[in-house]
Amino acid sequence: MSGAGCGKEYGKFVKKSVPFFGWGVLCGLWVTLKNFITSYFRKPDEGGIFTVQYPEECLPDFEASRNFPFLVYDETPEKPRCVACGICERECPVKCIHVLMAKDENGKPLRRPAAFDIDYSLCMNCGNCEEVCPFNSIFMDHEHKIAAYDRKDLMRPMQKLLKSNSYFHSIRPRDAEAIDRAIKEAAEKKKAAVPAKPAPSPEAPKS
């Protein structure tokens, strides 16, 4: 940033002429003095102080950064996208996901989870669950300040894991839009294909 500029300037000073012994030393002093003074009013990208005072201010998260998984619902938390297929549970390398499929009174499985727990203390943020999910239901969150005093506090039940699609849009707009579009296209195709072939699995291509 400013270092390269200073170096160039210093070289300019020295190469031009060396009037007397100690000139280079004085040039060096001038460079540091200037840096000291400009640090008070220059902006970070102009060679000022670029320290970010962490707990108060944060650098913006990158869109693709990933921390811990969460579940997406579309309209209300009662209707999550998740169908409790259990693929993420199987694929999770550290086995931190536990899914239980809901059943009606006859014992017939419903296509939604009765329980969906993730142990954040085990999770290693690999993102495999996001990649394998065929229903675009589980995604990696940006929230990272989840420290707790007790291990139990890191167990996340379904109520805490469920977050709205608009939240997903707010943290990862590009991914969310692509997925929404894909879901809509799939739904239209399905509607068009209903007379010919009943009930294909709602598979949507991943973004």
Binding site: S2, T32, N35, F36, S39, Y40, G47, G48, I49, F50, T51, Q53
Partner: peptide, 10 residues
């Protein structure tokens, strides 16, 4: 403090 300012730190 002064060294920090010289080195673009707080």
């Amino acid at each position: 403090k002064l060294l920090g300012r010289i080195q673009n730190r707080y």
